[in-house]
């Protein structure tokens, strides 16, 4: 089965193991363009692995993954680059380039992947840094940033190319509530104003419910619940109900 035009990301029976350890077992889900999907699950259940599969940093052992109309598990390097251009990725630990300043971290992708002039690059970098509240730290090295600042800088780098699909691995972990809610707002704004498809891993139920349209819950490598917040709340899986419940 091929996905239809409205599909942004489509997993079909994807399995992934590391050695003898099976991390994902025949996982299938579909994310429509412009939709926000939140991935919930306990630690070590393969959430980050799922995001890395989407951007093809990892390859599945079985199953197929579509990004829009491209089945990426068989793509060659050049075609993969084309697909990756559509995707922005915030890593769980930000993964900033530690030999570059914050400004250079953001200008590198613009300089490499677009034909923008230096002035345009400057203004875009400043704009995105302002959005995440780091405009004053342009010249700072990543090692001098706090954990929460690194997270926001990583988000800025993921956003700077204006991706159609944004993958965010725990965008608000380690942030205070006020900053976290600002980041949620920013993500929501990406979705409503730019129609960005959003796939985010999070442990913050409040933020997830505010931003997410649909939810998937992983447990022991299996997808145990999938649907709207209300659907997951009434799922027959105990873990899923606990993870989505606000009273925790």
């Amino acid at each position: 089965m091929n996905p239809d035009d409205s599909t942004a990301v489509f997993f079909q029976s994807v399995s992934k193991s590391f050695g003898a350890k099976e991390v994902l077992h025949e996982v299938s889900f579909n994310v429509a363009a412009g939709e926000a999907l939140c991935i919930l699950g306990r630690s070590g259940t393969g959430k980050s692995v799922t995001l890395k599969l989407i951007i093809a940093l990892l390859r599945p052992d079985a199953g197929k993954i579509w990004i829009e109309q491209d089945e990426i598990t068989t793509l060659k390097t050049e075609e993969l680059s084309r697909v990756r251009r559509k995707i922005g990725f915030l890593f769980q630990d930000a993964a900033l380039f530690d030999s570059f300043t914050l400004y250079e971290n953001l200008s590198l992708p613009l300089a490499r992947l677009t034909s923008k002039s230096q002035e345009e690059i400057d203004s875009m970098v400043v704009k995105v840094l302002r959005e995440v509240g780091l405009a004053a730290d342009k010249k700072t090295m990543p090692s001098q940033l706090s954990g929460g600042m690194r997270k926001r800088a990583g988000l800025a780098r993921a956003l700077v190319l204006e991706p159609k699909i944004l993958l965010a691995d725990e965008p608000v972990s380690g942030l205070d509530r006020i900053t976290a809610s600002e980041i949620d707002e920013l993500l929501l704004q990406q979705k409503t104003e730019r129609q960005t498809t959003l796939i985010m891993v999070t442990h913050d139920v409040h933020g997830a419910r505010r931003v997410g349209d649909r939810f998937v819950v992983f447990d022991h490598g299996h997808l145990v619940a999938y649907g709207t917040a209300a659907e997951v709340e009434s799922s027959d899986n105990e873990t899923a109900r606990q993870l989505i419940s606000l009273s925790s």
Binding site: F91, D93, A95, L96, F97, P109
Partner: peptide, 13 residues
């Protein structure tokens, strides 16, 4: 520190 992954994710070889 996943910086190599980050480079790859930006379509840089």
């Amino acid at each position: 520190t996943e910086q190599i992954d980050a480079i790859e994710s930006l379509s840089i070889d």
